[in-house]
């Protein structure tokens, strides 16, 4: 019995080890190819090139309607969400399959977040928040595929997301509570003399919200990808000694997987907090 269990663990860890080894080899090959494409031996590291918006079918001009790599990876994002949330739940099983479990997990996770943070009356807005969460999560994760493109690393995308949240939450606040929404800036629990000063501070912090909301996401994604690319460039230029930067890339990659999920979570929970302020503006 005991020997059997140790045997199983041994086989498992051996399998894991082999998988990690394969992964490392594949990663090294991809990095090597990438470095070659950028110019091998010149140590020409251009970490920001990966963020360039390029037309998909040749040409140099990027008009508003041109299909670009942005279009392609946004499409991949839609496809992966469709695969997870629609194909995964195809069985509608009472005892879920793995894919359905993941879809239900994501659903329950965000729904509970909305309910806990913003309250039960925020549940009508759950589809919008879930859309934002799944979009950011899938775009972040897809961006971690070597040689891919990360829409969420662009201010154009995150600013639109953050401004959408900001404007809709503000409009919602005024629609729901009228002028009472301004109570958000009038801290009634503070001494009367302090309240005007606090109101100014609250007002400034309210308008800084979309800035921090968007810059946080784009900055985190951009920085992580740039660092990955810098290390990958080293790996391409250092010959045999490139083992060290490859290990660095592996470590940072793991970190980036975490960051991708956490940034999606942070964006979503902040949206819930802003929504709560709009629905319950009184301190």
């Amino acid at each position: 019995m005991a020997s059997e269990s140790t045997n199983t663990t041994g086989t498992q860890s051996k399998g894991n080890g082999r998988m990690i080894a394969y992964g490392l080899v594949a990663l090294a090959a991809v990095l090597f190819a990438l470095a070659y494409a950028d110019g091998y031996g010149k140590l020409a590291i251009a970490p920001m090139d990966q963020f360039k918006v390029k037309p998909l079918f040749g040409g140099d001009t990027v008009a508003w309607y041109t299909p670009t790599n942005v279009t392609f990876w946004l499409g991949m994002s839609i496809l992966s969400i469709f695969a997870l949330m629609v194909m995964g739940t195809r069985g509608r099983a009472v005892i879920p399959s793995r894919g359905q479990s993941v879809a239900e997990l994501a659903y329950g996770f965000v729904r509970k977040m909305v309910e806990d943070v913003a309250g039960k009356d925020a549940l009508p807005y759950f589809p919008f928040i879930f859309t934002a969460f799944l979009f950011i999560l899938s775009a972040n994760f897809l961006g971690l595929i070597p040689a891919s493109f990360t829409p969420t690393s662009h201010f154009a995308v995150t600013v639109v997301l953050a401004l959408t949240v900001f404007i809709s939450v503000t409009v919602l606040g005024f629609v729901k509570s009228g002028a009472g929404f301004l109570g958000l800036f009038w801290v009634s629990s503070a001494p009367l003399a302090l309240r005007p000063i606090l109101a100014v501070i609250e007002l400034i912090s309210y308008f800084v919200r979309p800035v921090s909301h968007s810059v946080r996401l784009a900055g985190a994604m951009m920085a992580g990808h740039a660092v990955l690319k810098v290390f990958a460039g080293f790996a391409g230029a250092m010959g045999l000694a490139s083992v060290a930067p490859i290990l660095g890339v592996v470590a940072i990659y793991g970190l980036e997987v975490l960051v991708s999920a956490i940034q999606a979570y942070v964006f979503t929970i902040l949206t819930c907090v802003y929504l709560k302020d709009a629905l319950h503006p009184h301190h």
Binding site: M48, D49, F51, K52, V53, V62, A63, W64, Y65, T66, T68, V70, T71, L74, G75, S77, I78, I81, F82, M85, V86, P127, F128, F130, T131, L134, F135, P151, S153, H154, F155, A156, V157, V160, A218, M222
Partner: peptide, 28 residues
Amino acid sequence: MPQLDFATFPNQIFWLVIALVAIYLILS
């Protein structure tokens, strides 16, 4: 920073809005 290349903004925003609407429709 390609992020500050404002010439690509209309393009990105256009496709982003389409993607978000598509995702929203799929989900809801």
